[in-house]
Simulated scan of single mutants.
Amino acid sequence: MKVFSSPAVKKALDEVIIMFGQETGVSIEAVFEPTGQLLRRIDAGESFDVMIAVTESFGPLTTVVDPHTLTSVARSGIGVAVKHGAPEPDISTAESFVQTLRAARSVAYSGVGASGAYFTALLGKLGLSEEVGARATVVDKGYVAQAVVTGNADVAIQQLSELLFVPEAQIVGPFPAELQHYTEFSAAVSAQASDPDQAQAFVNFLTSAPAQTAYTQSSLELPTAPAQ
């Protein structure tokens, strides 16, 4: 079975896939790419059985996936990381967060992921597009926290669950509550799934207690409500 998935849930999904395989004997090939890139694969005609992506992205895909199978699985907030051992900046309030962005030599964020799209818009709302955006490090591939490890940036911005993938980086914490943004991820069965029942069984497993434990252990949160 082939699963398209956002990398934001990779750490948890790696474990969930193993558990599902042990329970069912089903082998899964997982492709982890940002939602935008997964959509480009679909537009190019690549087949898959289950897709896990930003919930809103399923809107235009009513002929590609079975909309009746759409299931919320987890959500992720955005966080801040610095190089391991570096002083941790104050991000406890909106004001201190803004000061941290202004003081950074460069702020790294994703150029293709949901966190980067939100952060770009947030810079505009805070009036920091020129001051901070002009010296930003935009990462179009891989995990953003690598930029603080290599010294290309002082601060990294990405989904908390993705910051975990760079152990040489130190997670400072989530955005302050008044600036936080949650991205919800849902799963759906492909309209052309090779085995729809098997694919549905996997989607169901994504909401099981073992799967939910894997989410919370990887800085993901459970969704506040089912996808509509």
Score class of each variant (00 low, 15 high):
residue 1 M to F: 14
residue 39 L to Q: 07
residue 220 L to H: 06
residue 5 S to A: 01
residue 12 A to N: 00
residue 49 D to N: 01
residue 12 A to M: 00
residue 64 V to K: 13
residue 5 S to V: 00
residue 170 Q to I: 02
residue 78 I to Y: 07
residue 208 S to G: 12
residue 192 Q to V: 09
residue 114 A to M: 06
residue 225 A to F: 07
residue 24 T to E: 15
residue 166 V to G: 04
residue 30 A to C: 10
residue 92 S to C: 03
residue 3 V to K: 00
residue 105 R to M: 02
residue 169 A to F: 05
residue 10 K to H: 00
residue 41 R to F: 11
residue 218 S to M: 04
residue 170 Q to H: 13
residue 82 V to Q: 11
residue 211 A to L: 03
residue 187 A to Y: 01
residue 59 G to E: 14
residue 85 G to M: 07
residue 94 A to M: 08
residue 47 S to L: 05
residue 202 F to E: 04
residue 107 V to E: 02
residue 151 G to C: 08
residue 73 V to Q: 01
residue 42 I to A: 14
residue 169 A to L: 05
residue 203 V to R: 11
residue 17 I to V: 15
residue 190 S to Q: 07
residue 126 L to E: 10
residue 86 A to N: 08
residue 117 A to T: 13
residue 222 L to G: 11
residue 228 Q to F: 02
residue 33 E to S: 13
residue 74 A to F: 04
residue 105 R to I: 02
residue 28 I to D: 00
residue 223 P to D: 09
residue 94 A to E: 13
residue 116 G to S: 05
residue 191 A to C: 12
residue 47 S to N: 02
residue 117 A to Q: 14
residue 125 K to P: 03
residue 221 E to S: 15
residue 4 F to A: 00
residue 227 A to Y: 10
residue 42 I to S: 11
residue 83 K to E: 14
residue 34 P to L: 08
residue 111 G to L: 09
residue 190 S to K: 02
residue 196 P to S: 03
residue 16 V to E: 02
residue 81 A to I: 00
residue 222 L to I: 05
residue 187 A to P: 01
residue 220 L to K: 14
residue 34 P to Y: 06
residue 227 A to C: 09
residue 143 Y to N: 05
residue 179 L to D: 06
residue 115 S to Y: 11
residue 20 F to A: 11
residue 46 E to N: 07
residue 215 Y to V: 09
residue 38 L to T: 10
residue 225 A to P: 01
residue 161 S to Y: 08
residue 113 G to N: 15
residue 30 A to Y: 00
residue 183 T to V: 09
residue 31 V to E: 12
residue 153 A to I: 05
residue 23 E to W: 08
residue 141 K to G: 01
residue 42 I to T: 10
residue 100 T to G: 09
residue 87 P to W: 14
residue 202 F to Y: 14
residue 91 I to T: 12
residue 166 V to W: 05
residue 198 Q to G: 08
residue 77 G to H: 03
residue 26 V to S: 09
residue 135 R to Q: 10
residue 177 A to H: 12
residue 126 L to W: 12
residue 202 F to K: 04
residue 184 E to S: 12
residue 46 E to T: 08
residue 11 K to M: 04
residue 159 Q to I: 02
residue 51 M to S: 00
residue 87 P to Y: 11
residue 150 T to V: 14
residue 136 A to K: 08
residue 83 K to C: 06
residue 134 A to E: 14
residue 168 E to K: 11
residue 77 G to R: 06
residue 119 F to K: 12
residue 168 E to L: 06
residue 45 G to R: 11
residue 163 L to G: 10
residue 214 A to M: 07
residue 32 F to S: 06
residue 50 V to D: 00
residue 37 Q to F: 06
residue 128 L to C: 07
residue 193 A to R: 05
residue 97 F to I: 10
residue 110 S to K: 13
residue 122 L to P: 12
residue 188 A to Y: 04
residue 127 G to V: 03
residue 208 S to K: 13
residue 39 L to T: 09
residue 195 D to L: 02
residue 93 T to F: 04
residue 140 D to Q: 04
residue 147 A to H: 08
residue 50 V to I: 00
residue 190 S to A: 15
residue 7 P to I: 03
residue 35 T to F: 05
residue 40 R to Q: 15
residue 98 V to T: 15
residue 6 S to H: 05
residue 138 V to A: 03
residue 110 S to F: 09
